[in-house]
Structures are given as structure tokens and as C-alpha cells.
Design a binder for these strands. Structure first.
Length: 415
DNA sequence: TCTGGGGTCCTAGGACCC
DNA sequence: TCTGGGGTCCTAGGACCC
């Protein structure tokens, strides 16, 4: 018996000693709350932020609006039906962004290990910050109150030992929630929840899991433990991640490095569905300029241009082209977008068009990769001319008029 | 007036090289 | 003329999240 007791104490101390304190903080109804801070008369009134025109949806709404059944991603007209006195406000994203920075800087006063996860949430490692704290609950309640006093923002806090558990914990109680999930509490707290409330299980996967009898996170855990074939087929490689998450073995690493974009894109729903090429290309031009501007600002060049279109039935299609010489010039992006459009969608009636620059590299990186000769040549030649070269190689036959001027060379591929 | 726009990551098939 | 297998890259589509 004493041996057992020693083992228990050892296991406890060992675990506590090894575990980090990982926190997820989520701002409650962030955009709506920002508007309330700007104009306190909005408080306790149903407020929705979002575009009110064609295709407009609710981006965020206040808790007062949620009482009417309004929720985010809901079409605005439907929100108005549910709540006729809904106050609709178009987003002021510069303002939200400044409030977001205040929030992150507030958290950084407790720990430098802060990882923004989106405009209104972050992960943070509070292991050192809570060391010596006798009452962790009061500690985080105080943090919550201080944030409110200083900025007016409300937040929910999740405290645990891994990112996944912290995220689930912050989701557990809103608004102004504080939930601590110890590893031993996973069964009590998470298992009774519906399977669709599990992070990573979305509206496609949840029905498939339900079709094999999985209703709750607990049901899912049992199937994961028994290596269930159905669940393996449904979740693929994600199976093992889900298992680790629910065993409390998920990642506890906080990445503080600056966010490094892997793609830069812009898309827009057209004012009305159309198959008019001239109009559609005007939108491609605007999108190409926007994408180019942002790529230049981020000091990025892309090897791939992808266009996306959506037809009247909301079905979307991608087409992309990868080329040797990375670019961020709007002319090139526009040319490729138009080529891809001409080749694939010119007759189609479209609802939405978009352009994404992918396969990004830093401008510096490119300069290093290219020899001095290639680099200067690249600078001299227009990106469009180089592009035609790439297009011809990729498509194996001339695409643009000027193609005849360009010497054909085999099927060489990038890298 | 039915259903945004910004992303990330994964999968599966085909081309191509060795 | 008929044949393999490993590895990388490109492409298109899909799921998910905020």
C-alpha cells in the first residue's frame, strides 16, 4: 500500500513537473464588442457586423442578437427575419485590428510566449506566469477583469496542458468563461459533448461519424481507442491526431514567430451572376492588383497563380498554373488569371471570382537562389515575357499571340 | 436577397525522372 | 517490346477554421 501511494505521488509530481500551462484566450463576440465600446448605447441591443447587400452574411453578432437565433455565417436577410430590430453595422476592420493589437500586447505582459491564432484569439504559455500562484482561478479571473477594465474587451479563457485542450476549454463557457481542464477531467468535461463540438470535426465529418453511431466525443474516443476501421476511413490520417488530442498528448508548443503567409488571395462575389467576359476580366484586374499590392507589402513572390470561380449553383472550381520565375507583378498575375479563365470558364455564368498567389518565397530568398546572371536577366526581361515561356512549356502549345516569338523548349519542369 | 472572404492542410492522380 | 518502383512536383478538389 505505501508503495502504491508513493507511485501515485510520483506519477502526480512527474506529470505536474513536466506539464506546461497552456492557455487559449478567445475574445467574446469581438467585432460586436468593439462597436459597443465605440458606442456604448449599443450595449444590450441586437447588433450584427457584416455586409448588408447581395450575399451579405453575419460576420459576428452580439449576445443580445444571438437570443433571437442570429448566428455568424447566417445570411443577413435571414438574420433580419429572425430579429427585425437588428442593428447592422458594416465592419471597421482597421479599428478591430487596433483593438486586437491591444489585446495581444496585454497578454504579452504576462508571458512573451504568445501566439495569435486569429484576430480575436491566441494561445499562450503561462507556465512561468502561474508559478507560485496559490489560486490559479483567481489569477485568471483577475486577468479577465483587468483586460475588461483596460480595454472593455470580454474574453473566455481555457487553461490546460495542450493546445487542443486549452482551445476546447475556452470554448466550454462563454462569455467571460474560465475553464480549467486537467488531463484527468477530459472524461468528465469533454466526453459528454456532441461530436461536432470537437475542434477539427466540421459539418462534413460530423454526419459521417454519426452514421456509424458516434454521437459524443466520448463515443469517438472509444472508437479511436479500438482502432475502429469505419472511423479510420472517415478521418484518414487525422485519426491519429484526434486520438492524441483526446489522450491529452497533443502539442503544447507555442510559436511566437511572425506569421508567414503561404498564400495571398482575394475573391469577390459579383454584384449579379454573369457570363460577360469583359466584366469578369475587369474584376480579375482589380483582384490581380489587390493580390499584387499585398504580395509586394509582404515582400513575397509567387510561383503559382490560381483562379477560383463559383457558378450559380455555388459549385466552385480551381485552376492553377505554376511557373519557374516567381512574380508579384499585377500584369503577370492578371495575364495568367485571364489565360486560365479563357481556357476553362469563358462560357460559364459566374457568381464569384478570385485569384490566389501560391508557392510563395521571400524576395530575398529568390535573389539568393538565382545566380547573379539569372537575377539581372530576370530584372531586365519583363515578367510577362518570362511567363509566356513558362506557359508554353506547361501547356506544351502556344497560348498567347506572342508565343510564336518565343523559342520552344522541351518539357522542363520547375526545379 | 439564400448561402463571404481570408486562410491552412490533406488527398489522390498523373507526369516525369532515375 | 515490355517491364518495376521510389520519389518529387503539379494540379484539382475538399474539409476545416475564424
Amino acid at each position: 500500500m505505501p508503495t502504491l501511494l508513493v507511485n501515485i505521488i510520483y506519477v502526480y509530481v512527474y506529470n505536474v513537473g513536466m506539464s506546461k500551462v497552456i492557455v487559449h484566450i478567445d475574445l467574446n463576440a469581438f467585432f460586436a464588442r468593439c462597436e459597443e465600446i465605440k458606442d456604448p448605447s449599443l450595449e444590450n441591443k441586437p447588433v450584427a457586423i457584416g455586409h448588408d447587400g447581395r450575399g451579405g452574411i453575419v460576420s459576428t453578432c452580439s449576445y443580445a442578437a444571438r437570443k433571437y437565433g442570429v448566428s455568424s455565417a447566417m445570411p443577413m436577410f435571414k438574420a433580419r427575419q429572425l430579429c427585425p430590430n437588428l442593428i447592422v453595422i458594416p465592419g471597421d476592420y482597421h479599428y478591430y485590428s487596433s483593438m486586437s493589437k491591444k489585446f495581444f500586447n496585454f497578454v504579452r505582459r504576462y508571458t512573451k510566449l504568445v501566439e495569435p491564432a486569429s484576430v480575436d484569439e491566441c494561445f499562450a504559455d503561462f507556465t512561468d506566469a502561474v508559478k507560485g500562484q496559490k489560486d490559479v482561478v483567481s489569477f485568471f479571473r483577475k486577468l479577465q477583469e483587468d483586460l475588461f477594465k483596460e480595454t472593455g474587451l470580454k474574453c473566455s479563457i481555457g487553461v490546460s496542458t495542450t493546445r487542443f485542450l486549452a482551445k476546447m476549454a475556452s470554448d466550454y463557457q462563454k462569455p467571460m468563461g474560465l475553464t480549467i481542464i486537467h488531463k484527468r477531467d477530459i472524461k468528465n468535461i469533454l466526453f459528454p459533448l456532441k461530436v461536432e463540438s470537437m475542434f477539427g470535426v466540421g459539418k462534413r465529418t460530423a454526419p459521417r461519424l454519426k452514421s456509424v453511431g458516434i454521437k459524443t466525443i466520448g463515443d469517438l474516443y472509444n472508437k479511436l481507442e479500438s482502432d475502429d476501421e469505419d472511423v479510420k476511413n472517415i478521418t484518414g490520417k487525422f485519426f491519429y491526431t484526434l486520438k492524441e488530442w483526446l489522450e491529452g498528448k497533443g502539442s503544447d508548443e507555442i510559436e511566437i514567430e511572425k506569421w508567414d503567409p503561404k498564400s495571398i488571395g482575394n475573391s469577390t462575389t459579383l454584384p449579379y451572376d454573369t457570363d460577360n467576359e469583359v466584366e469578369i476580366k475587369k474584376y480579375f484586374l482589380e483582384l490581380a492588383k489587390e493580390v499584387s499590392d499585398r504580395a509586394v507589402k509582404e515582400d513575397k513572390l509567387g510561383h503559382t497563380v490560381q483562379i477560383v470561380v463559383k457558378d450559380q449553383t455555388f459549385k466552385s472550381f480551381n485552376k492553377s498554373l505554376t511557373f519557374d520565375n516567381p512574380t508579384n507583378k499585377w500584369q503577370t498575375i492578371y495575364d495568367v488569371a485571364c489565360s486560365l479563365y479563357d481556357k476553362n470558364f469563358s462560357r460559364m455564368t459566374l457568381r464569384l471570382v478570385g485569384i490566389t498567389l501560391q508557392n510563395l518565397i521571400d524576395y530575398q530568398e529568390m535573389a539568393v537562389q538565382m545566380s547573379l546572371f539569372d537575377y539581372s536577366r530576370h530584372e531586365e526581361e519583363s515578367a510577362t515575357k518570362l511567363l509566356i515561356n513558362d506557359l508554353n512549356r506547361s501547356l506544351k502549345k502556344p497560348l498567347l499571340k506572342r508565343a510564336s516569338e518565343v523559342k520552344k523548349d522541351g518539357n522542363s519542369r520547375r526545379r
